[in-house]
């Protein structure tokens, strides 16, 4: 009896973990392995029902995706560059906005709770509801953006710009992503700032430190672990962001705002070439793992 109790005691934690483990295997781990396998196959619509019959393609999907002089590879490289610029701007902007807002709110006495709640609304809104609202704001003839620009006499009645087509579309998707993302930075930095004991600032103030010095010498160093995690999370979310461009532009994003997730999605589901789409996804994962790994390592060495 005691023996049996001990054995089952050892198995017990695994039993508690089993459902989570099985689900993660089914929805994340197995698909990832299958995805790597798919990227090595010539997997077009003819083999969708019976993908084991798809011919082995070796690395040809990868050579097509990485042939930057070819049509497919060139478009992929362009999309990568657009996504990189988009990510850098959204992450940096969200951090700056989030930090500024968290810092300002922290010192505010009256209405602090209300402001905190208000600032979190963009983050709490379902992605599609927020982005649809923005696509209304960006409408050429009926939207707020052009309306305000016209009121300020920055654009004439005849030459209202399109925001969701052509070169302006990059700016549009950037603004929407920033609006949706900065509240998360605000949330994380607020809780990070709250965890810093007040006496540290008071001690610094007694030593004659100005507000600026207190921020630079006390607050920022203590926020470093929080910032590290926050930046990685923001980077991954933004780089993989599908909702914002997909809801803003529909299936056909303009070339100037051709972000990778939507690019791969279109390459896979519009042409039904899953092998090529998988190869692109694997390349994306390799890049993300390398970038994240290098960043975390460089932080730790310092």
């Amino acid at each position: 009896m005691a023996e049996r109790g001990r054995v089952s005691g050892k198995a017990l934690p695994y039993l508690f973990l089993l459902p989570a483990l099985l689900l993660e295997l089914l929805v994340h781990v197995l698909p990832m392995l299958v995805g790597v396998g798919m990227s090595l196959l010539k997997l077009t619509q003819f083999f969708l029902r019976n993908w084991s019959a798809a011919p082995f393609a070796g690395l040809s999907n990868y050579t097509v995706a990485l042939d930057f002089n070819g049509a497919v590879g060139g478009a992929l490289l362009h999309s990568f560059a657009v996504t990189l610029a988009f990510t850098v701007l959204v992450v940096a902007g969200s951090w700056l906005l989030g930090f500024t807002a968290a810092f300002l709110v922290q010192g505010q006495r009256r209405g602090r709770g209300l402001l905190r709640t208000l600032f979190l609304v963009p983050y709490a809104l379902p992605a599609y509801a927020a982005v649809i609202t923005w696509s209304f704001l960006f409408q050429r003839d009926t939207g707020l953006v052009n309306g305000v620009l016209a009121d300020l006499h920055l654009v004439g009645a005849g030459d209202r710009p399109f925001w969701l087509l052509g070169g302006n579309s990059f700016l549009a998707v950037l603004v929407v992503a920033l609006w949706r993302t900065w509240p998360f930075a605000f949330l994380v930095l607020t809780s990070g700032m709250q965890a810093i004991p007040h006496d540290l600032y008071e001690a610094a103030a007694l030593d004659g430190a100005t507000m600026r010095q207190q921020v630079r010498r006390v607050m920022l160093p203590l926020l470093r672990p929080v910032n590290q995690v926050l930046l990685v999370v923001l980077f991954l979310w933004t780089f993989n962001d599908f909702n914002t461009p997909y809801v803003l532009f529909g299936a056909g994003a303009p070339a100037e705002a051709d972000l990778l997730s939507v690019h791969i999605y279109q390459n896979s589901f519009l042409t039904w070439n899953f092998g090529l789409g998988s190869a692109m996804s694997v390349l994306l994962l390799v890049f993300l793992s390398l970038a994240t790994g290098l960043y975390l390592r460089s932080r730790r060495v310092r």
Partner: peptide
């Protein structure tokens, strides 16, 4: 698993479900 791009396992998951 949080860092995987959704698009990476969307295609295989679709095939697995099929």
């Amino acid at each position: 698993t949080q860092m995987f791009p959704g698009i990476l396992f969307l295609l295989p998951l679709f095939l697995i479900y099929v």
